[in-house]
């Protein structure tokens, strides 16, 4: 057994709201090995996004959230790092792709500049070298004519193209772990497949571990080796993808699988 890249132990997340704490993640534990792809499935509100964000210690603006437990990344507990050290981890070692590409890019900066600032920050590149690298990255994620497109602003890109840009940003510093939080939910079905293929290819080429979060079993299939099924802030079932699909043990997993529309059955739930 290889040393895990990320080892989450008994993670809790509690929102403080006017003295009434609401616990949304309820002591979950899991490991991600270097280069491994792990899926997290569950309906909205099950705590999967909060779990993903906890790894980067990201909280929505204006909310106060308290984390408990341990998040060990290469043996270092992220929940006990000071803010400056945590900032060095974000983007450099653990990067994230978010759900809505339409609102995830800064509208007043060119897309190139939004890759540049990350490279300048973490890779210590000069502005000129960063731009050269940014153009390579845009090319890598399949943006045509990357040299001229780098100067364009987000509103000049379609949703799928923006998600490609955001993926280019996320992989720019070759992180060891890429967290993708519902990366295709906001996209057209045809574009979804392209983005998933892109993520798979980059994972292979860059040797990244991938934590893929989704509510859609269709997305998970063929993408990851292991799946954690989450409900009410807890992991209710874990397993390799194929056995879990073939013989789900937990009632909730069966219900989720039954919710996926199929072409080969007659109408109505199975």
């Amino acid at each position: 057994m290889v040393e895990p890249l990320l080892s989450v132990r008994n993670l809790t997340a509690t929102f403080e709201r006017h003295g009434a704490p609401a616990r949304v993640v309820n002591g979950i534990s899991f490991d991600i090995a270097p280069g491994e792809a792990v899926g997290f499935v569950g309906e909205s509100g099950c705590g999967k996004s909060v779990t993903a964000r906890a790894i980067l210690r990201l909280a929505p603006e204006g909310s106060s959230i308290a984390w408990g437990g341990h998040i060990l990344f290469r043996g270092q507990d992220l929940l006990r790092l000071d803010d400056a050290a945590m900032t060095d981890i974000r983007g450099r070692h653990i990067a994230m792709v978010f759900q809505d590409p339409m609102s995830s890019l800064n509208p007043v900066m060119s897309v190139g500049a939004q890759i540049d600032d990350m490279l300048i920050r973490h890779a210590g590149l000069s502005r000129r070298a960063a731009r050269r690298r940014a153009i390579e990255l845009l090319d890598l994620v399949g943006i045509r004519e990357p040299a001229s497109r780098a100067d364009d602003h987000p509103h000049q890109f379609s949703g799928g193209m923006r998600q490609r840009v955001l993926i280019a940003i996320a992989v720019s510093c070759q992180p060891a772990l890429l967290i993708a939080d519902e990366p295709t939910t906001a996209l057209d079905v045809t574009v979804q497949a392209q983005i998933l293929r892109l993520l798979m290819r980059l994972r292979r080429e860059l040797g990244m571990a991938l934590m893929l979060i989704t509510h859609d079993f269709g997305v998970i299939a063929g993408m990851v080796e292991r799946v954690h099924v989450m409900q009410h802030g807890a992991i209710v079932e874990t397993g390799a993808v194929d056995p879990l699909f073939a013989a789900p043990r937990h009632a909730y997993t069966r219900a989720l699988l039954a919710a996926v529309p199929r072409l080969d059955t007659t109408a109505g739930p199975a």
Partner: peptide, 17 residues
């Protein structure tokens, strides 16, 4: 602006405050 997604993205990029 603070509650916009791109600010969260900026944080996830590890940019300095």
């Amino acid at each position: 602006v603070s509650s916009q997604d791109y600010v969260m993205v900026a944080k996830s990029k590890g940019l300095r405050p």
